[in-house]
Structure formats: structure tokens, C-alpha cells
Design a protein around this nucleic acid. Structure first.
Length: 661
RNA sequence: GCUGCUGUAGCUCAGGGGUAGAGCACUCCCUUGGUAAGGGAGAGGCCGGGAGUUCAAAUCUCCCCAGCAGCACCA
């Protein structure tokens, strides 16, 4: 051995407070923590070395800026969640030998782990697994990092029957080293880092649910069984989280839709909404609003056929790619005889439109368009049908019959950026009006299966990115997630429990105008292809209303509320006056409901509050004699007595639809 | 479509091999009451659908359907 190897260089570690600790050789985070104090040693989970998270027991050999990570740090909590996943895997393999492990990442609020097992886990198994996890925490097994040769690791995991793990390691380039973490008898391939021992996890975790998930996210692969868990710093945080989930469930639009009598769904028309008067009132208010905004932005509204010949969809490319999700209609008079099949099977096929673009192109193609006419913006509240997979349906969020606030902008190539910027601004303004100043933006780029040349895609993606930058919107890329005819911007909003849903979209398309042969006459007298921008702000009225119901927890802004005001007399002697109050407000265009039932005022207030009516006007003989009303706002228990005139002015002003200012 | 779970009155749910239960809602009566449940009476269900086991099925078994959670998909 080289003599010099034993000569140690001093290591200087600088702490966040600027102080420096010097050691006469390589040192671990554990040692550092113990030098600083026993309290910190106990709390320490990992160490950050030059911005990188390391295991506490890994030796630091060179000078570095360091900080000890405890569960107070977000990094610490993330480590705990990661370890919770490992500990769950250890528990599962102890309890259910023969189960293979795959991957187990940290997610928002928790973690999951995907297992391969002949018999999927059930909810009942969760209790047992969770109990075993607590035992593993109690055992306080040391978690040890080991560096293995990649090929050795593959061989090892194959030998013990962990074929998925072996496959994962095989994806790592040959000759590279891999890290293995060992806790007790159990070990797993992992990049790390990890807690120093299982005991550091604590007890603030809970297994939440089991679900299926495809290996590597591909439905052609085997289905694994995934167990989701949540993990927090302490019991108090865990409890708060569970409470938060409970509260969020109360805002579920499906529940509120029933409670507020807005809409319903039923088996005979799965995925298609029955809008009730109250719900359709919200719809009409929203539609009116968006129509006004579109008119102000130079759009012209059109209406196109519901059923179109399949040759259209063949031309557009949708038939090839989406036929299995289209409702096909044979163009045939059904057999009315008692016997024989109803349909012959050889009729010409038509289809309910799954989107509006080809129809809008047909309108564009009528007559000859000049470059001077562009841009042309056709808007349609287009009712579309898509035969979505059963498992995809979800209340108003994912339906089979949907109405898009769709529009197509036909423009010259040099107008694409300007139009895109204008669209982004319009969308941001609409979202703000509707109560969503914040939203997520994604730029979805070319998918594997696509139409059009790479050159065209370069142009299309470039235009969208330029628009985002010009509109000063932050965004992230969604590689490979574009439509088959072009890249798209996706504007996402979240529901009550944090699931995100795409609402608005902007798609540049150089392909469909070509396929459907749309052209305009340019300045040079020659035919040119217009660029088509597909765009929707709300996406579908169904989904957007669903999101709004959850966002507002049913307490819609006054201008959208199905019933804006309930007038409730205290005694039947005030009925006539109550009716006068209601008539006065109705004349101002407000949606008013009088409650003349033989019930106590407490009862009426309670009921209208539950129905989320924004304003209750209580009138008794006192008010009737003085021409006043007692106004009670939803969510407040204050009552303001004012004259009917004051109330009328105040409420009708407040019920005015926003206009983007 | 895939995996798991669920399906009993309008709603929320209990029950569980022997003729179906509660609360709220609904109808009627009493009550005219001042800001989140006044009192009484009544009506309401082939226990998601179909097949099977059994003397007997809402209950057990199988097959469908739908819903829920997640995955896959999302023009």
C-alpha cells in the first residue's frame, strides 16, 4: 500500500451560518452532526454537500459547503417519503414472498411503489402491510449504501427472481457502478440518498389505496399493483392532511351537482350530462360571457352539422387515428320488418363529429379568400361526441358529449405569432374574470405518430414558443404530447383534490389546411395555404363548469349563481311585500326566488344557505312597513338592513357580468 | 380498456340464508315563528341486471352493467 494514502488532508466544512469546521481527514455527516450537538445528531436525516444530497454516513473527502438536513427541511420530508416507499417494499416482501419490486418514487404528499404479483393486493392487505412497516421502523434497521458493479447487480437480481429490477439495471450503461441500499435483510437498487436508519421515518404515514398501473406506463405491458401512501413529518401534519382531503371531497362537483340540483348523469347516457334548470343557468351565463368576449376579439360565430360523412374524417386523418373513439352512424333506413337485422351492415358510414375543425374548413372554403380577408376567426359552441374509454369518464370533467368553446383562426404564416399572442392574452383575461389568475401552461411537442414534415413542425413549435415568450407566460415542455397535426399549448387548471385538467388549448396546424385543401389568394396572385390555429379557452363548458364548481365550492360568483337572491318572508303577512321585492329585482334581470313556505325563518335561511344562494333577503312586517330588506350574504351571519332601493342598486351592479377589465 | 373496491328508499348509510331498517328529503295536519333543523301523522324499496346453489337468496357462487380510485387514452 502507498504510504501517502494514510496521510490525510484536512477537510473544511462550511455550515450555512458561515462558520467552518475543520477535520483532519474524510468525515461523515454523522460525525459533523455529533460535533455540533447531540440534538442535531438525533434529528439529522442527511447532509447537503455542495448542493447535493448525500447519505449521512457517506464520507466527505474535500472541502465543501454543507448543511445538515432534518425533517424540517423539504428535502428531509422528501427523503422520508422515499424511505417510506422502501420500507413498504420491505414489508410487502416479508409478508408476501414471491412479490417482485419495481419502482417506488416520491409524489406530491407521499409515495407509491409498484409491485408485480399474481394476485393483486386488496385494501385489506394495506392494514397488514402498514402494521409491518411500523415494526420495521421500530427495528430501526441501519440503511447502508453499497456501490456495486452493474453486471453483478443484474446477475444478483436475476438470481433472486427480481426480473423487473434486473431489467431496470440493464438499462444503465454497462461498466457503470450502481448503488444498492441495504436495510436489514432487504436491499434495493436506488440512487439514494436515504435516511441513516428506518427508525428515522417516524410514524406519520398511512397507506391510502391500491390501484393497477402498467409496467413502464405502457398498456401493452403487464399490469402491476400499485400501493399509494402518504407520509408527513409528524402525526399532526398527517391528521391535517387527511382532514384536508375530507374537506376537498366536500367540494367534489359531482356531489355539489346533486346537492345543488345542477345536473345528473345516468346509465342510459353514460358520459353525457342531463343539465337541470339550475345547472343550465350557470351554463348559459358562462356561454353568454364567453360569446361576448369572443365578439370583442374579432371572432364570428358559426354552427356546423352534427353528423358528417366518414370521408371527411378520412381526409382529415381522424378516421385513421381516432375511429375507435368515434360514434359511427350508418346512413340507412333501418329494417322495420319483424325479422332480419335492423341494419344491413353495408350502408355508407357517417359519424357524429368528434371535433369541429373540418367543418370550419368547409366554411372557409366557400368562395375565394384573399390575403386581405385574413385572419378569419370562426367560433362555434360545438357539440362534439367522443366515445371515451369507460375508465376515463369522470363526472363533468371527462364526458362523451361535450360542448367546446371552439374556434379556428385561418391566417397567414406571418400572422401566427401575433394571433397566438393575442389568444394567450385573451385566455389570461378570461381566466382572471372567472377566478383563475393562476394556471399551468404546457407546450406539447411533436408526437411519434404525426403528419407533416419535421420542417413544418419546427416552424409550428417555434411559433407557439414565441407566443408564450411574447405573452410572458411561464411554461414547461410536454415532449411528444402534441396532436398528430401540430404542437399545442395546454392550459391546465386543478380540481378540488389537486388533479389537473387541460382546459384551454392553442394548436398550430400546417397540416389540415393541406389535407382539406384550404387556400387563399396572396398578394402575388397565387394560391397559398393558410395556417390554422385551433383554440379553445374553456376547453369544454362541461369541464370548465366542473372546475368552477370545485374552485368556488359551489358558491358561484353572483353573476353566475343559478339563484342569485332568495326572498324569505318571516310571516305569511309579509308574503305580498316579499313578492314585490322579488318582482323589483326580477325586473332588473336578476334571478330571484321567493320562499313563501310555511316554515320558520331559521329553516329557510339554513336551506338556502345549503343551496348556496349568495343572497338571502329576509322580510318581516318591520321591513314591509318601512320598504326595507334585511340582507344576509352566504357565508356571513351578519344582516344588513337597507331600503329596497339600495339593495336593488347594489345587487344588480354586483351581478353584472365581468368584461375583462 | 386494465387492476382493485362499491352498488339497499330521492339523498347519506345500517343490516345480512327465513316476507326490508334509520336519519334527512317528500305529502298532510298543527304552528305565523326575526336569521343554519318547531311539533305530529303518513307515504315510499323485486336490496344494479341475469343465471346458479338452496326447502328458502337482498345476503352465497358465477356472468354482465354502472359508479369510485388509480393506470392507459385524451383530436
Amino acid at each position: 500500500m502507498n504510504e501517502n494514502a494514510s496521510v490525510k488532508n484536512p477537510v473544511n466544512l462550511r455550515l450555512p451560518d458561515g462558520s467552518v469546521r475543520t477535520f483532519d481527514g474524510p468525515v461523515t455527516g454523522t460525525t459533523l452532526a455529533s460535533v455540533i450537538g447531540p440534538g442535531l445528531l438525533k434529528a439529522a436525516l442527511a447532509i447537503k454537500v455542495g448542493g447535493e444530497l448525500w447519505d449521512l454516513n457517506r464520507e466527505i473527502e474535500a472541502d465543501a459547503d454543507v448543511s445538515i438536513i432534518t425533517k424540517r427541511d423539504d428535502d428531509g420530508l422528501e427523503l422520508m417519503r422515499h424511505d417510506a416507499a422502501h420500507i413498504m417494499a420491505e414489508a410487502v416482501q416479508e409478508l408476501f414472498p414471491g412479490t417482485q419490486v419495481t419502482i417506488g418514487p416520491v409524489i406530491e404528499d407521499g409515495f407509491f411503489y409498484d409491485f408485480a404479483r399474481d394476485k393483486p393486493f386488496t385494501e385489506e392487505d394495506l392494514e397488514v402491510i402498514e402494521k409491518r412497516m411500523h415494526e420495521i421502523v421500530k427495528r430501526d434497521e441501519n440503511i447502508i449504501r453499497e456501490v456495486w458493479d452493474r453486471d453483478d447487480a443484474v446477475a444478483y437480481f436475476k438470481k433472486i427472481g427480481e426480473l423487473y429490477k434486473a431489467e431496470l439495471i440493464e438499462a444503465i450503461p454497462a461498466g457503470e457502478l450502481v448503488t444498492i441500499y441495504r436495510q436489514g435483510e432487504w436491499l434495493d437498487l436506488c440512487r439514494g440518498p436515504h435516511l441513516p436508519s428506518t427508525g428515522k421515518l417516524g410514524d406519520a404515514f398511512k397507506l391510502m389505496k391500491v390501484a393497477g398501473a402498467y409496467w413502464r406506463g405502457d398498456s401493452k405491458n403487464a399490469m402491476l399493483t400499485r400501493i399509494y401512501g402518504t407520509c408527513w413529518r409528524d402525526k399532526k401534519e398527517l391528521k391535517a392532511y387527511l382532514l384536508r382531503l375530507e374537506e376537498a371531497a366536500k367540494r367534489d362537483h359531482r356531489k355539489l351537482g346533486r346537492e345543488m340540483d345542477l345536473f345528473h348523469l345516468q346509465e342510459e347516457a353514460q358520459g353525457s350530462v342531463f343539465w337541470h334548470p339550475q345547472g343550465y343557468t350557470i351554463w348559459l351565463a358562462l356561454e353568454k360571457y364567453i360569446r361576448t368576449r369572443l365578439q370583442g376579439a374579432g371572432y364570428r360565430e358559426v354552427k356546423t352539422p352534427q353528423v358528417l360523412d366518414s370521408k371527411f374524417w378520412e381526409q382529415s386523418g381522424h378516421w385513421a387515428k381516432f375511429r375507435e373513439n368515434m360514434f359511427v352512424v350508418p346512413d340507412e333506413v333501418p329494417n322495420t320488418e319483424e325479422d332480419g337485422p335492423v341494419l344491413s351492415g353495408d350502408a355508407k358510414l357517417m359519424a357524429l363529429k368528434p371535433m369541429n375543425c373540418p367543418a370550419h374548413v368547409q366554411i372557409f372554403k366557400q368562395g375565394i379568400k384573399s390575403y386581405r380577408d385574413l385572419p378569419i376567426r370562426f367560433a362555434e359552441f360545438g357539440c362534439c361526441h367522443r366515445n371515451e374509454a369507460h375508465g376515463a369518464l369522470h363526472g363533468l370533467m371527462r364526458v362523451r358529449q361535450m360542448t367546446q368553446d371552439d374556434a379556428h383562426i385561418f391566417c397567414r404564416e406571418d400572422q401566427v405569432t401575433e394571433e397566438s399572442v393575442a389568444f394567450c392574452a385573451l385566455l389570461a383575461s378570461v381566466y382572471k374574470d372567472l377566478g383563475f389568475p393562476e394556471f399551468q401552461v404546457k407546450l406539447a411537442t411533436r408526437p411519434e405518430m404525426r403528419a407533416g414534415s419535421d420542417e413544418v413542425w419546427d416552424k409550428a413549435e417555434g411559433a407557439l414558443e414565441a407566443a408564450l415568450k411574447a405573452a410572458n407566460l411561464e411554461f414547461e415542455y410536454a415532449p411528444g404530447e402534441g396532436a398528430f397535426y401540430g404542437p399545442k399549448l395546454e392550459f391546465h387548471l386543478s380540481d378540488a383534490i389537486g388533479r389537473t385538467w387541460q382546459c384551454g388549448t392553442l394548436q398550430t396546424d400546417f397540416v389540415l389546411p393541406e389535407r382539406l385543401d384550404a387556400s387563399y389568394i396572396g398578394e402575388d396572385g397565387n394560391k397559398h395555404r393558410p395556417v390554422m390555429l385551433h383554440r379553445a379557452i374553456l376547453g369544454t363548458l362541461e369541464r370548465f363548469i366542473g372546475i368552477m364548481i370545485e374552485h368556488y365550492a359551489g358558491k358561484m360568483p353572483l353573476w353566475m349563481a343559478p339563484t342569485q337572491v332568495a326572498v324569505a318572508p318571516i310571516t305569511s303577512e309579509a308574503d305580498e311585500y316579499a313578492q314585490n321585492v322579488a318582482d323589483r329585482l326580477s325586473a332588473l334581470g336578476m334571478r330571484v326566488n321567493t320562499d313563501l313556505r310555511n316554515e320558520k325563518i331559521n329553516y329557510k335561511v339554513r336551506e338556502h344557505s345549503h343551496a348556496k344562494v349568495p343572497v338571502i333577503l329576509v322580510v318581516g312586517m318591520r321591513e314591509a312597513e318601512e320598504g326595507k330588506v334585511s340582507m344576509r350574504r352566504l357565508g356571513s351571519n351578519e344582516n344588513k338592513v337597507m331600503t329596497l332601493d339600495e339593495a336593488a342598486v347594489q345587487l344588480s351592479a354586483e351581478a353584472t357580468m365581468p368584461t375583462g377589465n
